[in-house]
Nucleic acid binder design. Structure first.
Length: 227
DNA sequence: GGCCAGGACACCA
DNA sequence: TGGTGTCATGGC
């Protein structure tokens, strides 16, 4: 089974890639926006969309709430799925306005379990998006599970959730790591760094998935020590 | 020109 | 419950 604990894997990743200092954003609301816009989308495109929202003065909840949806769509177009994501942004801001008087700090001070339930009731916000908001904007010790995390750990076999469900994956990390938001944030960021590094280096051998079997960094943790 | 990127959801069997 | 189609842009 596991040759390394999850903490040992983290230490190796940190040693190799250094602190990632996620989430890349200037304000909590920018974190929320980024979490929604990055759904199935490269961060490069998200940055463009956020830049356009900034230029249009739309990077505040009160503006998103009142701006015509077509205008919001146009701003976030580079992020893809712009119609769905514009609606999701507006729905989030509606929740924020109705339940917390538009005060994001107040929303983020709500109990994590309560806030997670409320976020998941917003159409377009699923578990990964909700948890990204809870962790990076709210500072709650909630581990974010993304596609990279699943692929990396299912191939290394370091942990084995009973099913492929989001909550089961998350429970494994919560069981095996101390509930430290700094650790969780860095860990998630480092897994993305590993995936991207691996992708760049192994592209010729790797076929369509950057973490397929041809990718040694994905299946062999010691690869990180030797290279 | 095809594939994929830091998902979520509706629909179907 | 699990599988599949849909949403859409931009870089490689």
């Amino acid at each position: 089974m596991a040759r390394f604990s999850l903490e040992e894997v983290f230490a190796r990743l940190l040693d190799r890639y250094g602190p990632q200092h996620w989430w890349p954003a200037e304000t909590p609301f920018e974190i929320v926006v980024g979490a929604i816009l990055t759904q199935a989308t490269s961060w490069r495109n998200v940055e463009k969309a956020i830049g356009r929202m900034k230029e249009a003065g739309l990077l505040e909840p009160a503006r998103v709430l009142v701006v015509p949806v077509a205008e919001l769509e146009e701003a976030i177009r580079p992020a893809g799925y712009f119609r769905a994501k514009a609606c999701t942004l507006k729905r989030f801001c509606t929740l924020l306005n109705d339940r917390y008087g538009g005060d994001l700090a107040r929303m983020l001070a709500a109990p994590a379990a309560t806030l997670r339930r409320e976020l998941l009731r917003v159409r377009g916000v699923g578990p990964e998006t909700a948890d990204s908001i809870l962790l990076y904007a709210g500072g709650y010790p909630v581990f974010v599970i993304d596609a990279y995390t699943r692929r990396i750990f299912s191939r290394t076999g370091l942990i084995g959730p009973p099913s492929d469900r989001y909550d089961d994956w998350q429970a494994e990390f919560h069981r095996n790591l101390p509930p430290d938001p700094e650790l969780f944030g860095e860990y998630h960021a480092l897994l993305v760094a590993l995936a991207k590094d691996c992708c760049r280096k192994r592209r010729p051998q790797c076929g369509r998935c950057p973490l397929q079997d041809g990718c040694r960094a994905a299946r062999d943790p010691e690869y990180l020590d030797r290279n």
